[in-house]
Simulated assay, not measured.
Amino acid sequence: MSLYRQDDPNVRKCLRHGSFHSKGNILLPSNTCRNLHHVKSSLAWEMGSTLATMLRMRRPTTVLWSLGFCFLLFLYVLFPSTNTVADQCECHSNQNPVTANSFFGHSLVEDSKPFPNDKHKLAVLIPFRDRFEELMEFAPHIHKFLNAQHKNHHLYIINQVDNLRFNRASLLNVGFLESGIDCDYIAMHDVDLLPMNAALTYEFPYDGPYHVAAPHLHPRYHYPTFIGGILLIRREHFRKVDGLSNKYWGWGLEDDEFYARLKEAKLDIFRPGNLTSGTKHTFRHIHDRQIRRRDMIKCYNQQEITRHRDRQTGLSSVRYQVQSKIEITIQGSPLTVLNVVLECDRFVTPWCDCTENIGNTPKTPHDFKKTEDVIVPKLNRKKHLSQDG
């Protein structure tokens, strides 16, 4: 909402002549046109008063002087000065009136590309639910980290506000669709994983998806097909594989299914190398599993279905509603919060709500005919998993 009245005729008149001038970073409506009109009206009024006073004196010399003076004032009022209204109300056409997002010369909306040497813009997508304490630490940390690399970026918190089980993959699909069109690549970023090594780059992934939280660096997961934590991917590549599956309600396996999509699309996955900080000093994992237990229940036939590659759902089929969109700042870090209500097709994924079928379904061996469709990695827990911090 603008901070001037749209129905003010003087404002409209000045706008017609370019009446807005710049003062610092804030734009204020110029009073030049109004002041000029006021001066001329005052002069006309004074001219009339002076002439009436002179005529009452009835002295020939005084009357002649007053008539001459009034004639000069009449010419000044009648004809425009060398500085026309358009000149007095000078402005720059590329400026906009001050809005509620501007205050005392400081814009509350950060420049979309504050680093001109970076030709790209990153949308950092953070799937989220009930992790406020972690967000308060994550947002300023990642904002400072990316600024140090001169990366144009914006943070999107995709907050699931419905009563269904958490669906990280669908929230990432929503974040992709709702993020700014000027963002040409995304980071699928966990809120509990903080990069600590300055050598971790968030550069535009020209060659293919770039897995920042590589298995040899992540504090917990070390198996070779792991691509969770932090993954950078170009928008065209994300669309090419139709995003992530929407069948993964609860915790786990959506990244493994996404890995299968990337490999099937023949997209090579790149990872950082030559980092000596290892699994203990490259990232800080701030998740406390004693406070926030992961939802690992497998109800209905979830155990069997989610072991396979999903060829039915993805970015093109995600169903959701954005309940609200809020712009906030946390310790100088601007971010967009999308409060999202996901929709569930209970005939396809009844496990989006396990309240009527509590408890894990039994794990039974299966003789899969299409072994390439099985996406669950076989893990040596001692070798590929570390104690969760």
Rank of each mutant, 00 (worst) to 15 (best):
M1R: 07
S2L: 14
S2V: 11
Y4P: 06
Q6N: 14
D8Y: 00
K13T: 09
L15N: 03
L15I: 14
R16S: 15
G18I: 03
G24H: 00
T32K: 14
V39D: 10
S41F: 15
T50I: 14
M57G: 00
P60H: 02
L67K: 03
F71D: 02
L72V: 11
L72R: 15
F79H: 09
F79L: 10
S81Q: 09
N83K: 12
T84P: 07
T84C: 06
A86T: 12
C91T: 12
N101A: 12
S102R: 13
F104H: 13
H106W: 13
V109K: 13
P116G: 00
K119A: 10
K121L: 04
A123V: 01
P127A: 10
I142W: 14
L146V: 08
N152Y: 10
L155R: 01
L155Q: 01
Y156N: 05
Q160R: 04
L164R: 08
S170R: 00
I181R: 05
I181V: 11
Y185D: 05
I186W: 06
M196W: 04
M196S: 04
T201V: 12
Y202S: 11
D207H: 11
P209N: 01
P209T: 03
H211F: 00
A214Q: 09
P219T: 08
R220M: 08
Y221A: 00
Y221E: 10
H222W: 03
L232F: 06
H237S: 08
F238H: 04
K240Y: 13
E257R: 05
A260F: 13
K263H: 11
R271S: 13
T282L: 06
Q290I: 06
I291D: 08
R292C: 08
C299N: 05
N301A: 10
R307H: 03
R307W: 00
G314A: 09
L315D: 03
L315F: 11
S324Q: 12
S324T: 12
S324G: 05
E327F: 15
I330T: 10
L338P: 02
N339V: 05
V341C: 05
V341Q: 11
T349R: 02
W351P: 10
C354W: 05
N357K: 07
N360W: 03
H384Q: 02
L385Q: 13
D388A: 06
